[in-house]
Design a protein around this nucleic acid. Structure first.
Lengths: 194, 194
DNA sequence: CTTGTTTTTGAGCGATCGGTCAAGTTATAA
DNA sequence: TTATAACTTGACCGATCGCTCAAAAACAAG
């Protein structure tokens, strides 16, 4: 019963997350949300307190989903880098299947100003959490000898994020699909050579 | 007289541009705009037709300003790459002086979905215009021998945009200012070696 | 079935949104 | 000075915003 409620709540959050990811926080209205999660305002506000509250849960869930997705690719790969490459390939090459071509955390980081304190702080915290997770992976990759130790795990993680973000942003326009694969290949070539 | 009017109109657009750049299209209200450009709704709508109309002018002006800024740095440099590097240094190292750390065209590209047709199409057009401008510069850099011709001007332009966008996004968070300069250096090192 | 508790509903609140327009002001020319 | 054209003003429009809450529905315990 507890699990039943939990499941439905997570389900609602995931649907809200998709809409927020696509449209951003400000362009998503509570009426839009009511429709996609099939709840009336009273229930939404009893469960999440506010639009911000629901967005917060959505952003946290998004981050957890991304990490779970990476874990999934890593479990089917024999090396960290090949798992990461499979993840990047999936995100970029099938980006039409997602609500947006751009990472929700990155969208949030460009949408919120310093004045929207609560949501910006949460966003920054989740970015740090994700970077920390990447550091764990790159540390392992260094230990495995997949990457040399000219650079620290943090530096590899930073490089990865910059490349990945830049690439997704650049490819978020029509008519350049055939560029995606060679650009991903270049990204991983650079990663191994910096 | 014609110039007088033109000047004031450009002035208004520039102020609106700063606000749109900072807050994005959806989070900027017409009341916000009224205040910063000191015009009443009737005048604004007589001059620009709609909030979208004023945003369009703002985005076009932003793009023109960026190109003018690059031209300025190029005029004080003896090489294309050093001019571009001065531009990148200025944008990133003094980003606190700007309304946002992130390029307004990139923000727009992540804010608008396919359904917001007019603004998204304008945004894509301006992105193409800017890329074309970069191609001219990189063509010259190749001719000058600043870059080898293993890559086309377009490929250099693409690489530049991906790195620059990724870098600005990554640095748009507090407490990592000392990372900016080495990352810029790395970006230009990579550019010469791809 | 009754009773008490929890959850859901949707009408509707005050605020704010993008935008309009009649009235007022200013600029120009005769 | 006066008539006319051009621009500016701000009260105000209907729509939509985020959100509330009394009433209804669903559920649980005895």
């Amino acid at each position: 019963m507890v699990n039943k409620v939990k499941f439905e709540r997570d389900d609602v959050i995931r649907q809200a997350s998709q809409l927020f990811w696509e449209k951003g926080f400000h362009a998503t209205s509570t009426r839009d949300l009511q429709e996609v999660i099939n709840m009336r305002p009273g229930s939404i506000y009893a469960a999440f307190g506010s639009k911000e509250g629901l967005y917060s849960e959505s952003l946290k869930d998004y981050t957890a989903q991304i990490q779970a997705q990476i874990e999934g690719f890593l479990n089917h790969s024999d090396a960290i880098l090949s798992g990461l490459r499979a993840f990047v390939n999936n995100v970029i090459l099938t980006r039409q299947d997602y609500p947006s071509a751009i990472c929700m955390l990155i969208k949030a980081n460009s949408e919120f100003t310093e004045k929207e304190d609560t949501l910006r702080e949460l966003n920054l915290k989740l970015l740090r959490v994700f970077e920390q997770y990447l550091c764990v992976l790159f540390n392992q990759a260094i230990k495995n000898g997949e990457l040399n130790n000219n650079r620290t795990a943090l530096e590899y993680a930073q490089f990865f994020q910059i490349q990945f973000t830049g690439l997704r942003g650049y490819l978020n326009r029509p008519g350049i699909d055939e560029l995606a694969q060679p650009m991903i290949d270049q990204m991983f070539t650079l990663l191994k050579n910096i």
